[in-house]
Computed example of a mutant assay.
Amino acid sequence: MSVFADSALSKLEAEQRLFNPVFKGPTGVAGRYGFRGELALKFAPKFADEARPPEILAEQVMLVAESGKPTIPFLCCYLLSFEYLRPLVEALGDVIDEHGKYVLFCNNIDLSTRYTVPYGGATFYVLPIDEATAYNELLDLLYIERNDLKKLDTGSRLDRIYETARNFIETFPAISFEEGLKRMGPVRNPNENRPV
């Protein structure tokens, strides 16, 4: 039996896309489920049943879904490159729609820019990120005070973030996915400058 019962997250769980969970299960609201961790976007080829890590991941993922509803109403994550929007949409498939709030923090877009990108039947808020975490950047975007979340468990924090995000309305300049590819910068090596 899926941890996520009859919610849209059960599809991602069945496809083994949910990696390294920090949180996975029911939130503080009845019939609502959440996930925090990583999302596999592109799997590595398998050789002789050898389990290999995914080739492309969405990191720092926050997802919310509700029982009996076919789509995910909220997603936030970090993408190393804007171009990973394509495999993200392919991985999510029909569990995203035009009504969801989907926030992507991308490492290789200009730090002075923010966009909305219609793609795959959904609209994505695309924002830059440098050294901060997607979680902290999202709290700043939604004007959520960190002190208000300190006493809450992870599931209840997801509830608060989702409930604030679904009322978030902002008009960033709209660009196409193709235009975003032209504007994005080089993909940095995430392991550079790390001590050995």
Rank of each mutant, 00 (worst) to 15 (best):
L104K: 08
E90F: 01
V117Q: 09
C106Q: 02
E90G: 01
V103H: 09
T113P: 05
C77P: 01
D94P: 04
N107H: 13
F82L: 11
N107D: 07
L79Y: 02
L75Q: 07
L80T: 01
P70L: 03
C106N: 05
L92R: 05
G93Y: 04
E98L: 11
N107I: 06
C106M: 10
T71E: 00
E90M: 06
F74Q: 13
L111V: 12
L92Q: 00
V103L: 02
L75G: 09
E83N: 13
A91P: 05
P87W: 07
P118C: 13
T116M: 08
T113Y: 06
T71L: 00
N108C: 08
P73T: 03
Y102H: 09
L75H: 12
T116H: 10
C76D: 07
T113D: 14
V95M: 00
H99S: 11
Y84V: 04
L88R: 00
P73C: 02
I96N: 13
C77H: 04
H99N: 13
E98K: 12
G100P: 01
E83G: 02
G100L: 02
C76E: 10
D94E: 15
S112V: 14
L85H: 14
C106W: 02
K101D: 07
C77F: 00
I96K: 01
E83K: 15
L88M: 03
N107A: 13
D94Y: 08
G93I: 03
T71W: 01
I109V: 09
E90S: 11
E98C: 14
L80F: 03
K101M: 11
P118M: 12
L85M: 15
A91W: 00
R114V: 13
C76V: 15
L79V: 04
V89S: 14
C77M: 00
F82R: 10
R86A: 13
P73R: 12
F82K: 05
T116W: 01
C106E: 06
T116I: 12
T71F: 01
D110W: 06
L104F: 05
T71V: 06
V95I: 02
C77V: 01
D94T: 14
F74C: 05
E90C: 06
N108D: 14
F82D: 05
L75T: 10
C76M: 11
E83M: 08
D94N: 14
H99L: 10
L85C: 10
L80D: 06
G93D: 06
T116Q: 15
Y102L: 03
T116S: 14
T71S: 02
Y115P: 09
N108A: 12
D97M: 10
V89D: 15
G93A: 01
S112D: 15
D97S: 11
V95G: 00
E83F: 04
Y78A: 03
G93F: 05
P70T: 02
N107L: 07
C106Y: 05
I96W: 06
F105Q: 11
T113N: 10
P73W: 01
H99E: 10
T116F: 04
P118S: 14
E98G: 06
L104W: 07
R114T: 09
R114N: 15
P118A: 12
F74N: 12
P73E: 03
L111A: 15
P73A: 09
L88I: 00
G100D: 02
P87Y: 07
C76K: 10
R114P: 04
F74V: 15
T71M: 01
D97E: 07
V117K: 11
E98H: 11
L80R: 08
L92A: 04
T116L: 03
F74G: 08
F82E: 02
K101T: 14
S112M: 15
